[in-house]
């Protein structure tokens, strides 16, 4: 479904992704972890063609996502790290979820009753019908994240890329968003790539944990084989103190 072969990417002379190979299969639910600056966001952006690798090859749904950007992106949902909504833009929550339908619909066509039905359904599934008419720029962190999820759900996607969407959320909201994502994974038959730091709060359905470090694949395990030794080497932190901090992260 997503084939990344020997991909490298340089920014201002610095190698940000080095020789990354990953083969993500249909229905994989991959957690990507790794220190800040490891290249997680950059990797996600090469998957949907927002960034062109300097060497190597990316193939998504049998297409080159950079060359066929518009076509590939219609099939990929992406929720960015810290999505920004300008408060001065007069958009309601429903307007924002409708944005999800715009790319699918394509140019020169208006959204139809069918599109609005998808929008309603997505909002219902995420549980934000009550926010429908609220100004989108004035929501709590948890509400914002749900709106973004609904926006992507409204789109008929096959792959969902999630970049640190639990950041800045209280524990209850983290749990809520996690179980939403799990539910979506089961119900919509999606392939999900989930970038996160919160090892204790990984959704149960995760099939694979890929760790990135300094732009390389540091480890690629099934959640069962992941352990505190790997983690301590990944973050270059003493195992014991790391465990004290992270707590029981048994996957």
């Amino acid at each position: 479904m997503i084939k990344i072969q020997k991909v490298s990417k340089y920014f201002s002379g610095k190698e940000i992704l080095s020789d990354i190979s990953l083969d993500i299969k249909k229905r994989d639910f991959v957690a990507i972890i790794g220190p800040n600056g490891a290249g997680k966001t950059t990797l996600l952006k090469t998957i949907n063609g927002l960034i062109l690798p300097d060497t190597g090859k990316v193939e998504v749904l049998d297409l080159d996502p950079y060359k066929n950007g518009l076509a590939v992106r219609k099939k990929i949902g992406f929720i960015f790290q810290n999505e920004f909504i300008a408060k001065n833009v007069p958009l309601s929550v429903k307007d924002v979820v409708c944005v999800g339908r715009v790319g699918v619909k394509g140019l020169f066509k208006n959204l139809t009753a069918e599109d609005f039905a998808s929008v309603e359904k997505a909002m219902g599934e995420v549980g934000i019908m009550n926010l429908e008419d609220r100004p989108a720029g004035f929501l709590s962190g948890g509400e914002q994240r749900k709106v973004s999820i609904a926006r992507e759900l409204a789109r008929d996607i096959e792959i969902l890329l999630l970049d640190e969407i639990l950041m800045n959320l209280d524990p209850a909201s983290q749990m809520e968003i996690n179980s939403l994502i799990s539910g979506i994974y089961k119900k919509h038959k999606l392939t999900i790539v989930f970038v996160t730091h919160l090892l204790r709060y990984l959704p149960e359905e995760i099939t694979r944990v890929v760790a990135l470090k300094d732009g390389r694949v540091f480890s690629d395990f099934s959640p069962r084989d992941f352990n505190s030794k790997v983690l301590s080497r990944l973050y270059d932190v003493n195992e014991e103190s790391l465990m004290k901090y992270v707590g029981n992260f048994k996957l």
Partner: peptide, 23 residues
């Protein structure tokens, strides 16, 4: 009139607009 819905998406968030297949 022609690009109203795309313009709205660009106002919302240019990066999200691009990532969702809007030119």
């Amino acid at each position: 009139v022609i690009f109203g819905k795309e313009i709205k998406a660009v106002f919302y968030n240019r990066e999200v607009a691009m990532a969702s297949g809007i030119p």
